[in-house]
Design a protein around this nucleic acid. Structure first.
Lengths: 233, 233
DNA sequence: TAGCATTGGATTGTCAACAATATGAAGCAG
DNA sequence: CTGCTTCATATTGTTGACAATCCAATGCTA
């Protein structure tokens, strides 16, 4: 009954037991929100002083950010914040499509009854949030990520969960942040989520995969159009 | 004309510019070949002394191995070599299927004419190697990895290349090492590779993806049967 | 003036000592 | 005898100083 405490994934919690954890968490947010601008160079000593830690923990933090694809590092030459070009974002969505498509397929095969119930419950909460907040879809976005992560967990594939939640998740958040001004279409997304859960609960893996891939590739189309519009202003 | 020198991926070359690079490379091989047995605990100071470096570079090496999913680390509790259970291997092959399926699909869309020629050339060399070595299929295995990496590169998706070659590649090698006693079926694999390249060169992404996924899931079936047999001896 | 070697400064890589934390054994209460 | 507490030890986390490397500005030569 106390396994819930141990279950928290280290990359998600902010309470961080170690200095490197805390600095990594802060830097991660700084990069995603743009406080550390894209392409800017990272100087270890400066950042270390700025965050009140030694270079050791900071180096570890940077290495973890590298694993999240948030910084690019070259030996002896230093690290730079990743530049999120349209091409890069396209790459991210492609990988997402592949990984989450497999997620949905496996989830249909291996999901536990309890997890199905929890998914339906989650979607109900989403619907309420949409009705209440109407225009303010920020919470919906967080919930959206939650939804996708839960599907991955339902697949019972630990490597998939790790790849998505630890390695790709932050990059996805960064993409979202750039196209956050979108009016979005939470209702449509919710409907698609429902279809996916429905397919999964009916154990139709093939359909679940197709729906999930269409869902993600659709999201990319919307995001892409937004980027093009931004280019024209 | 000198871009070829710079093109070498840091995670692949053994000549390593930094101590952490070299130690990481050595540890990686130690884990894959079993010199560091699965599940064994990793003590920083011991390994550092053993490899003639300080704890600093060794810690970095371990963190990189963690990013390759070769070791699991718990704060303040230390790191252990990953245990490659059948379930774990199954997870790896599922992720491979998703990622490399997308690779093939994108390659069909974006591959350059020059790369198509190089792929056909590669397959010819494989055929020669099979004829010459007959039973000794070790080189084929190396070449096989080369084939899959090249498809990823042909997809023009940098994230895909990185995910496969840096993060998953070593885990795949480790799986292979466990099922290496297999008589394998290089000729059959070669035929499947041909089909895949054929589909790609005809720009049929959908088919290329299906063929690639079937190819990988087939390889897993073979490997799985081998594991079951091993269990019975 | 253009091109190249040199050198100074900045930045990363490496080291060894110190502090914080967890693991396991021993002792004690119940 | 069992379960908990306490404490010693081993191991990881952190720090600041030192060495190796790279980058750019400077001056020299043709």
């Amino acid at each position: 009954m106390e396994q819930a405490k141990r279950q928290t994934i280290s990359t998600l919690d902010a309470g961080s037991r170690t200095l490197a954890d805390r600095v990594c968490h802060q830097l991660k947010d700084d990069i995603i929100t743009g406080r550390l601008s894209q392409g800017s160079k990272i100087v270890e000593e400066d950042l270390a002083r700025e965050h009140g830690v030694s270079r050791g923990p900071l180096r570890e933090a940077i290495r973890r950010l590298e694993a999240m694809h948030l910084v690019q590092r070259i030996p002896h030459a230093g690290a730079r914040v990743v530049t999120l070009s349209e091409k890069m974002m396209s790459d991210v969505y492609s990988v997402r499509e592949a990984l989450e498509g497999m997620s949905a397929r496996l989830a249909a095969e291996f999901i536990k009854p309890k997890e199905v119930d929890e998914l339906w419950l989650l979607l109900e909460q989403h619907e309420k949030n949409i009705d209440e907040t109407e225009g303010t879809v920020y919470f919906q976005r967080e919930g959206d990520v939650d939804f996708h992560i839960r599907i991955a967990q339902a697949s019972q594939n630990q490597l998939l969960v790790k790849s998505l939640s630890s390695e790709l998740y932050q990059l996805i958040r960064m993409c979202r942040y750039r196209t956050a001004k979108a009016p979005s279409r939470p209702t449509k997304a919710l409907g698609e989520h429902r279809q996916i859960v429905d397919a999964i609960s009916r154990r139709d893996g093939e359909l679940a995969e197709i729906l999930m891939r269409r869902h993600i590739s659709g999201a990319w189309q919307i995001a892409r159009e937004l980027l093009l519009k931004d280019h024209h202003d």
